[in-house]
């Protein structure tokens, strides 16, 4: 039941954004209207995730808010997440009027997993400090890159960003740091790819 509520919220979330961008002409100055919608595959926050985001620091960075799901058909137990991502894009290479590349992005994202079985705080029957990590929250660091482009495939020119990220989380990182012989860096890395549709800036 909880799962369906979450899926419904996700749907309303995306539909709400669609209708809000339909009105962007009148409301384009409102700060709370996101700059883009985003969809991502993998990246340790879900099989697919979707959400909204904002350009910050004169488009040298972005903030993303994502809801992610791992559905049962993947063979895994179903999981639902909320992710807050900060992405810095310091280097911008303009290829032509329609295409720009950010070759080296970096950032951090916090992924919260829904469900009382994934505790944020240790339940009362554990002594203080029994386990030092949270089950519910993962802290991820990543590097990546993206390409921003205007496509004329639609009736009006539309602006997209396609990105990839490769990173790890704090508990996999500590495992690697202590075991550099038995583990190699690829053991702890996870990757994600995604698309941002920048509907505000036509």
């Amino acid at each position: 039941m909880k799962r369906y509520i979450l899926y419904s919220i996700l749907l309303v979330f995306v539909c709400g954004i669609r209708s809000s961008f339909a009105q962007t002409r009148e409301h384009r100055d409102h700060w709370y209207i996101p700059d883009f919608v985003v969809a991502q595959y993998a990246g340790s926050i879900g099989f697919v995730s979707a959400g909204v985001g904002y350009d910050i620091f004169s488009k040298k960075g972005s903030l993303d808010f994502l809801l992610g799901v791992v559905p049962g058909f993947t063979g895994s137990t179903a999981l639902e997440t909320f992710t807050f991502k900060f992405n810095a894009m310091p280097i911008r290479i303009r290829v032509n009027p329609d295409v720009a590349i950010h070759p080296l992005n970096t950032g951090v994202y916090f992924c919260y997993t829904f469900g009382k079985e994934y505790s944020s705080d240790l339940p009362g029957w554990y002594p203080d400090g029994y386990y030092w990590w949270s089950e519910a929250v993962r802290v991820n660091l990543f590097i990546g890159g993206d390409v921003r482009f205007v496509t004329h495939a639609f009736r009006k020119p539309k602006k997209f960003t396609a990105y990839y990220e490769i990173g790890t989380n704090e508990i996999k990182l500590v495992s690697y740091i202590q075991n550099k012989h038995a583990l190699n860096i690829w053991n702890i890395l996870h990757a994600g790819v995604g698309v941002r549709y920048m509907f505000k800036h036509q």
């Binding site: 993998a42 099989f47 992610g68 895994s76 137990t77 089950e135």
Partner: peptide
């Protein structure tokens, strides 16, 4: 590819 992890707690 296994690098595309869905979640640290995935069970497949």
């Amino acid at each position: 590819c296994s690098v595309f992890e869905y979640h640290p707690y995935e069970t497949m």
